[in-house]
Amino acid sequence: MEFNIDNIIYWQEGIFKINATLLHTWIVILLLVFVSWMITRNLAAGINIRRGQAFMESFVVFVLTQIEEETHEDPNKYLPFIGTLFLFIVLSNVIGVIPAFESPTASLSTATALAACVFVAVPVFGISSQGFSSYFRHYIQPTPLMLPFNIIGELSRTLSLAIRLFGNIMSGSLIVAIVLSLSPLFFPVVMQAFGLLIGVIQAYVFSILALVYIASASRVQQVQETAETSKQESKI
């Protein structure tokens, strides 16, 4: 049994290759895009809407509410990133339940890639909302001595994101595989169901943590700005 699905290679040419991770990622991407296209093909702006549209609207509203509660900002800016992260991870986690399908998130490469996306997204959103210099200033707050610790903090939380997701999903698959070899009837089904729950929870955790990191990057600047404004007001 292969625990690292990156090593299941279907085609290779030099450094280019198609392994199980990429294949299942593409399947997930195609599935998501197809379902999205099917739903948004005939959207209704009125009251009578279809079930698919209602479901997707509910999902979007749920994500928007979560973002707004966390950031207290216009949630539409963060919606595509956080929503896509959640949808991709959920579907990637859940698809592993289907026999012959593998969860792309069970690959450390995928989890790391997603964490890297978050790692890049945090300063991007921070800079876009606050500006370049004001964003990077918080790395040397309260003193420039804190710069290495802040950088280590950024890296470690990104790493923890990746490891958490990978560990949970990979362990789920691993447990099911081990249990299957021990007791082939009934029990693996329960573990699969449990795996579904864990998959959804991990997707939620990953997305919420990403949101918290992005929000904290914006909030630090807001707090600093508020403090500066109050200082100026006191001077006046």
Binding site: F16, N19, T21, L22, T25, S109, T112, A113, C117
Partner: peptide
């Protein structure tokens, strides 16, 4: 970590 997969996954995302 398979760095090709890592890069490809970023692009995919």
């Amino acid at each position: 970590i398979d760095w090709f997969t890592f890069t490809a996954q970023i692009i995919n995302f």
